[in-house]
Amino acid sequence: MASGVCALCKQDSELMESHIIPKFIGKWLKETSATGYLRSAVNVNRRAQDLKKTPLLCNSCEQIFSANEKLFAENIFKPFQDGHTKFDYDEWLIQFIISLSWRVGTMERIDPKNDMSDQLRHELDIALDTWGEYLLGRSREFGNYKHHMFFLDRLESVPAGEPIPDHTNAYFLRTVDATVVNNENTVFVYSKIPGIFFVSHIIPNNMTGWKSTRIHRGGRVKIPQSCAAPGVGDFLKHRVEFVNSFVSHMSDDQRQKIVDAVSKDPDRLERSRSLDVLKADQQLRDHNKNNKDN
């Protein structure tokens, strides 16, 4: 642990090594992988045992997040991965999503990577401060920002003539991703875990086109959903291509390590989610090829 100021409560404290994407996601990815290891999209030449951590929160604030992560894992993430399509929830779900968006936005605040105007960055700061007060229990309100949760499915086909990046299923179903998205008049926080992505709108505070995706203080969310919000489809394609640009830099040595790990335990490969995704992406490639040939 390192000493510093907790990013949430602003108190001097010993800082925990906090996960930006919750720890249980990394554990699930390892358990369902063909090799038992993780690989970061931005560091594909290094195997890892855990998702990225950074000194961010004091122990008390870390526990606030952990409680909602446990409820999300038990009531939504794991049931969804087992095929469930209806999920009842209480206020813990909006708290979980806001905590995730707060973490992603806070990392942008700490280490700016986006070319954002001063006005949009000011609006991001207001949202983060509002969400922080809500997460700490100092306020019952979390602003007029709308939060959406969208469940992703295996993509088996696309309309003829519509380009789709390679490894799209790997991105949808096996990849974690998070960023603050902005253009000249828009900013929102995007977070993605295997099979699910979240959007927290800031400017504007919502977009039309979402159906059965908005999360409130309580209710039920169910599949099917749809999203025709402007630009979301193109944005997802861009993120797939972004991740692919890193994967293409994997060294021959690291590729061989994957082959060796799989060869040592072929039974693990057969029961892994990794193999399912590889087959799904191959089927999608075959479908696209047939579309072009015809």
Rank of each mutant, 00 (worst) to 15 (best):
W92N: 02
F142H: 08
K27H: 09
T130G: 09
Q225H: 08
N206H: 13
L278H: 04
N68H: 15
D177N: 05
V232L: 15
K289G: 10
D88F: 02
A2R: 15
V247L: 06
F172D: 02
D252A: 14
E162L: 15
S212L: 08
A67E: 15
A229E: 04
K52N: 07
H84K: 14
N183M: 09
G143A: 06
S99C: 01
I97C: 04
Q282H: 14
S245R: 11
E133D: 11
T32R: 01
W131N: 03
C6Q: 01
F24V: 03
S272F: 06
I193T: 05
A2H: 10
E123F: 09
K78S: 12
H201N: 10
L120E: 07
L152W: 03
A170M: 12
M107W: 08
E14L: 13
S18Y: 05
R255N: 13
N205L: 01
Q81I: 10
G105C: 06
Q283P: 04
A73S: 08
P159K: 04
K70L: 10
N169M: 11
L57F: 10
N45R: 09
E156F: 13
T130Y: 06
F150Y: 07
S226E: 10
V189E: 00
R138H: 12
P159A: 05
T208I: 13
P112F: 07
S66D: 09
I215T: 06
R271K: 15
M16R: 01
Q81G: 01
S117R: 12
V259Y: 04
M207Y: 11
F172I: 03
F246H: 13
I25T: 07
D265Y: 02
E14P: 00
D166V: 08
D252T: 05
E184Y: 11
A261H: 02
R140I: 12
A34P: 06
V199P: 00
I110G: 02
Y37I: 04
F188H: 09
G233P: 06
S60D: 10
G26C: 06
S13A: 15
F246P: 05
D115M: 11
N288D: 05
F246K: 03
I94C: 01
V5G: 07
P79D: 01
D260N: 11
E156L: 14
R138C: 08
D286Q: 13
H148L: 08
R217A: 14
I98L: 09
K192I: 02
S263L: 13
H201W: 12
E162H: 11
